[in-house]
């Protein structure tokens, strides 16, 4: 058995190394397919970061009347936290709101002067609410429209920003769906192109396969080397595509940061390098081996 495997590996390597332009052409297609695969990973990271940023920017703020007792506000906060759509609720007291305001305007003497002349804190206490999903803000806003709470609340920002929030929610939803469709389409395209290239490569070897059969080679010794060749394409393809892609990421990441400030692709790649290499190898090897296996079957018949 060990001898059989050694021969299968040797034939596979010979097929690859002596195939010259055919091996080179197949390898180029696999490299391109893997670059598409890597681009999809980057695309997914960009989409996720952008969506997260958009989500981060959406919230509902409920401003309370200055007369609203703090314990009542905290009860309302608790009730909002218990809503199934709520992701988080942040309470900002009147004192904290004032401190934040003063800190933000400390370089503006006119505002500082105006504040010091006021007898009491003019700012309202508020709660900032984030939903688990942008589409759930409407449900949360409906939950806030409570007759018992109405005498205590001064303003709910959702009503002012309802149109923008809904549009952002739809944009995020479309972004997610579009991302999924593009990923599926490009993955399918890469798989089909690779499969066709490997099929053509094996088709051009059909005479050799016929000779092997006539000499009495068992199916394992005919198809095995093509599987090995598929693995070689996968491994070398992954290495080349990473060698091409990594500098592109390194060079392009700072430019992407201009558009999406929270996105650090370099850091993402460094942090995920092992899993990325693993996915690359897995995708490349699976592409090569499965394509070879499918393509060779029809030549193994009598």
């Amino acid at each position: 058995m060990a001898t059989l495997f050694a021969r299968i590996f040797r034939y596979g390597w010979q097929n690859f190394s002596r195939g010259k332009w055919l091996s080179a052409a197949t390898l180029i297609v696999i490299v391109l397919a893997l670059i598409v695969f890597e681009s999809l990973i980057v695309f997914s990271v960009i989409t996720k970061t952008s969506v997260a940023l958009l989500k981060e920017k959406i919230d509902i703020s409920v401003y309370f009347k200055p007369t609203a007792p703090e314990e009542e506000i905290l009860k309302i906060k608790k009730a909002i936290e218990n809503l199934p759509e709520t992701e988080s609720v942040e309470y900002v007291s009147r004192d904290k709101a004032l401190a934040t305001f003063k800190e933000a305007h400390k370089d503006d003497p006119a505002i500082s002067q105006a504040l010091s002349e006021l007898a009491e804190n003019p700012l309202s206490a508020l709660v900032n609410i984030k939903a688990k999903d942008p589409s759930q803000y409407a449900a949360i806003a409906k939950g806030l429209d409570n007759a018992d709470w109405r005498p205590l609340t001064q303003k709910i920002t959702y009503r002012q920003n309802q149109a923008i929030i809904e549009r952002l929610g739809k944009a995020i939803d479309i972004g997610n769906r579009l991302g999924l469709i593009i990923t599926i389409l490009l993955t399918l395209t890469a798989i089909i192109i690779t499969f066709n290239t490997v099929s053509l490569a094996i088709y051009s070897n059909r005479d050799e396969i016929g000779i092997m059969r006539l000499v009495g080679a068992p199916a394992s010794l005919i198809s095995g080397p093509y599987m090995v060749e598929g693995v070689i394409y996968g491994v070398i393809g992954a290495a080349i595509s990473l060698a091409v892609f990594w500098p592109a990421i390194y060079w392009g990441a700072p430019y992407l940061k201009y558009f999406i400030t929270d996105l650090d692709l370099r850091a993402y790649f460094v942090a995920h390098i092992f899993s990325l290499v693993g996915y690359q190898l897995l995708f490349g090897i699976a592409l090569g081996v499965i394509s070879s296996n499918f393509a060779i079957q029809k030549y193994l018949k009598i």
């Binding site: 010979q14 097929n15 002596r18 195939g19 005479d207 050799e208 016929g210 000779i211 092997m212 059969r213 006539l214 000499v215 009495g216 080679a217 068992p218 199916a219 193994l300 018949k301 009598i302």
Partner: peptide
């Protein structure tokens, strides 16, 4: 069957007009 044919073919040496050698292997191989 297809799996039994290789064994038969090993008992029959075949020589063709068009040689049918494996082009990516040398004479020894």
């Amino acid at each position: 069957s297809s799996s039994e044919l290789p064994e038969l073919r090993r008992k029959i040496g075949v020589v063709f007009q068009d040689f049918r050698l494996l082009p990516k292997k040398d004479v020894y191989e």
